[in-house]
Design a protein around this nucleic acid. Sequence first.
DNA 1: TAGGTGACGCGGT
DNA 2: CACCGCGCCACCT
Length: 118
Amino acid sequence: MDFYKRVEVVCKNIPYGKTATYGQIALLCGRPNHARQVGYALNHRVSGPDIPAYRVVNAHGFLSGAAAFATPQLQKQMLKKEGVKVDGDGYVDLKLYGWHNTLEDAMRMNGYFERDGI
DNA sequence: TAGGTGACGCGGT
DNA sequence: CACCGCGCCACCT
């Protein structure tokens, strides 16, 4: 299985106006302990205009990857643009804007993985 | 080969 | 809440 390709698929499935955590993405990729690798993937491997990396935050709702975007404020701007409120310290309220994915979401991901052989 | 690093996270205090 | 320790693991030096 190609972890990085899975990260790409999962990121593309984060709903508009919602955010997902690194650990959550790792879990959906079938690798529970790879939260750090999700961060690595987004920073060095997975990139492109069709991949909403700005919707990924850490378990506390903090925009921990903000500095890695083209401009330091870009992640915050992109989120606010789709209705996600970011406070002055760079945090989003996961209760309101977290992607509370269902078992169906997880099974759909697996369907994509199997279809694409990754 | 050994050791350091990091867009991380959980459990304990 | 905050802070801390520890586990985690692919990638560099």
